[in-house]
Simulated scan of single mutants.
Amino acid sequence: MAELVIEGLTKRFGGVTAVDDVSLHVADGEFVTLLGPSGCGKSTTLAAVAGLDRADGGRITVGDRVYFDAARGIYLPPEARSCGLVFQSYALWPHMTVFDNVVFPLTLRKVSAADRRRRVMEVLELVEMAPYAARYPHELSGGQQQRVALARTLVYHPAILLLDEPLSNLDAKLRDRARAWLAELRTRLHLTTIYVTHDQIEALSLSDRIVVMNGGRIAQIGTPQDIYERPADPFVADFIGTTNFLPARVAGASAGRAQLELDDGQRLEVVAARPAEVGSRVTIAFRPEQMHVAPPGPADAAGSVLNTRVTSRSYVGGNWQVGLDLAGAVLRLETRQPPPEDVLRLWLPHAGGILFRGVADAAA
């Protein structure tokens, strides 16, 4: 195991900068996820670490080894880097058995026959595939193929593990099971890992830290709880989980609180960790689980009550997803019972919402 340090990494494809001055420190044994939409630079960053793409600038080190240094002209080819890479497609040899697929990297490294068999069976036991050693890839499920691909990577004891959307080819139920199995395995291995995904559930459930990327740059780095509860900007808030955005004007501010006026004249009060200037345009973000249907009567001391218009009702198993129109903003609320009328009184907490300056694109 070893720590990974990326400094000022830059990669261009023609006139497009895919990775723009990215710096990241991954501690020994840490599981870090690169998360973001397609084209954000996460897979390009992974490929640069693996040596599959030669970056245009920056520096990459793993432990005391320099993998890449643009200033010094250092570039180690993939085979000289102690990286274990699991692809999205698994890339198993179809004419080889499970055993032969997994032993192949050891054969290339000229490991003795006795050690090869011992190490292959150890790693197949680790991924719970030892009973399938004699089978061929076409005789395995997608989840089993994914385990074989991981075993083939772990068998030669890489310094770091690189996983490029390894669960994306699985169906929803199998992906859930594979995610739980991978979470258990990472705890046992304690191997320095970079995991690339666009799936927020995978990122939240597996990671020690999440790196949210946007447009080739890092938008935010933090623990799953930090990223979800304290997003740095509207992009992160919108990408991680479901977020409701309300454009408003600051009508008053004092003692860490802000009084906001919506476009239809309704008002609410929020705790404002970020300073709010009276008269400025802002966006307040709420998660669906923070909002509730208000009971009859005046609002309590912990929240504000606003009148909204119901635009849709969808049953999603155990809960209803209710679409709302509040001063022209589209909101989503989750309730146990569908609203009986087209007008709904919505309770929003004073604390818990996040205030952003300006009108966010997600709210526009």
Rank of each mutant, 00 (worst) to 15 (best):
T153I: 12
R357A: 15
R357F: 03
Y195E: 04
M121H: 14
H350Y: 04
D226N: 12
L260W: 00
R217P: 05
E184T: 14
P94K: 05
Y75I: 08
G279P: 05
P247H: 01
P158M: 11
G8L: 05
A27W: 03
Q146L: 06
I240Q: 00
T223S: 12
R217E: 11
V310Q: 01
R357S: 14
G353P: 07
P298V: 13
V16T: 15
G328K: 00
L170K: 01
R249P: 01
A248Y: 02
Q266C: 03
N244D: 09
A272G: 14
L333S: 04
R345W: 11
R152E: 03
S254G: 08
R59H: 14
R357N: 10
G279M: 07
E334L: 12
K173P: 08
A299Y: 00
L85K: 04
Q266H: 02
L306I: 07
P131C: 06
I201R: 00
V236E: 00
A180W: 01
R116Q: 15
H350T: 12
G352Y: 07
S304Q: 03
R209K: 14
L9Q: 12
T153S: 15
L35N: 02
W320T: 08
A276K: 02
L344H: 04
S38D: 09
A91G: 04
D69S: 11
L34Q: 05
M213E: 06
F104Y: 15
G36S: 09
A180Y: 06
L24V: 13
L35M: 09
S141M: 13
E165V: 01
D238V: 04
Q225N: 12
R249V: 14
L124W: 07
G215F: 11
Y90E: 01
A149G: 04
S82C: 12
T10E: 13
F245C: 01
I227G: 00
F356Q: 07
T17Y: 11
A180E: 10
V196A: 03
Q220D: 09
H292D: 13
G39N: 06
H190I: 03
T283R: 04
V98I: 11
R287Q: 07
Y132R: 14
Q144K: 11
R357Q: 13
Q88W: 08
E30T: 04
L92E: 07
Y90M: 08
A273F: 10
Y136D: 13
E277T: 15
C40G: 11
R186E: 10
S254D: 14
F68S: 06
V32T: 08
L9H: 10
A47N: 14
S280P: 08
R217H: 10
L206I: 01
R81A: 12
A362W: 05
D342A: 14
V5E: 15
G323P: 00
H292P: 02
A80W: 10
V127C: 07
P339Y: 07
A180N: 05
L246F: 06
P296L: 09
F87V: 02
V123W: 10
A183G: 15
N169F: 02
G73P: 08
C83L: 06
